[in-house]
Every structure is written in C-alpha cells, then in structure tokens.
C-alpha cells in the first residue's frame, strides 16, 4: 500500500502542483511594489535620514563633535566675547559623506539642535555636494517648530 501510495505520489506529483497553486495564489493578490518616484513613501518619525542642524539654537557645546565616531562634524565656537551673548557657532562643518546615520550625535545634544530628518535621497552629483558649512547646512523648516524630547524621542511644541 505504501509503495503504491508512493508510486501514485511520484506520477501525479501533488507537491509540484501545490507549489504551482501557491504561485497562482499570489498572482491574484495585491502587489507590494512601491512605484517609488511616483508614490513617495511616508517615513516614520524616527527615520534617521540626512542630518539637519538648527544653527539658531546651537550653543556650540561640541558634544556632537565628540560623539561622532567618524569625525564628520566640526564645530567652531564664536570668539569668547561674542559667545557671552550669542552662542551660535562661528562655523559648523558637516561631512555627510562619512555619516553613518548612527544617531550618536543626536543623543547628547542639550538643545536638540542636531537631528536626523526624513530626507533619504542622498544621491549627489559630486562628493563636494555632501560637504556642508553653516550657510549650506540643510535646515528642516517643518521641524524647526519642534523641540526634541530626548527621552521619548517625540516632537514637543515649543
């Protein structure tokens, strides 16, 4: 009986038909492809995209510079006399080319001035386009209104 059963299984190949049924099942199901440039993905809030820096609130404490494992942030505080009144950095260099998107610079920032944005299209024509200074730093207009709650990592209205 067993032998007959095995023979029947061999000549009727139910397992192959089962596989074909599975592929047919997915033929009719909705597809998962995102047609990317046409349909923009909605990214979650925590997405670690390109680094954005709010120079206005930065206090030149250089915590991010120390935290960065790749050394891609350089902060130059203003001269001492200026620093007393205006703590904004004299120059801020960001080398996005070496950024690991690890988020270690975001953790220690006392003012929440540096944070990842949801911008994920980082392709550029030339390497130099990934080097930013104070003038060219990307700056997130939408997120400017928020402060960063470090523990919860949720935006809080100013």
């Amino acid at each position: 009986m067993n032998a007959i059963g095995r023979f029947l299984q061999m000549v009727t190949f139910p397992e192959l038909l089962k596989g074909m049924a599975i592929t047919t099942k997915y033929l009719a199901k909705p597809k998962v492809t995102e047609s990317y440039p046409d349909a923009r993905p909605v990214l979650p809030y925590r997405t670690k995209g390109r680094l954005h820096v709010e120079i206005e609130t930065c206090i030149s404490c250089r915590m991010c510079e120390k935290a960065c494992p790749e050394g891609c942030i350089r902060v130059y505080p203003p001269p001492k006399e200026v620093f007393k009144t205006d703590k904004r950095p004299a120059e801020f260099y960001l080398n996005q080319e070496h950024c690991l998107h690890c988020g270690l610079c975001v953790d220690p920032c006392p003012t929440g001035s540096i944070h990842h944005s949801q911008e994920f299209e980082l392709a550029v024509v030339h390497y130099d386009d990934l080097l930013f200074d104070k003038e060219t730093l990307p700056y997130d207009l939408d997120q400017k209104r928020f402060r960063w709650n470090l523990l919860e990592n949720v935006p809080v209205k100013k």
């Binding site: 592929t23 047919t24 997915y26 597809k31 492809t33």
Partner: peptide, 11 residues
C-alpha cells in the same frame, strides 16, 4: 513573473 512574485515587473 512579476505578478507571480507579488511585484509589478517592468512598467
């Protein structure tokens, strides 16, 4: 093939 594999194929 794309449709079989839950994707769209060349479009």
């Amino acid at each position: 093939l794309g449709l079989f594999q839950s994707r769209l194929g060349p479009n």
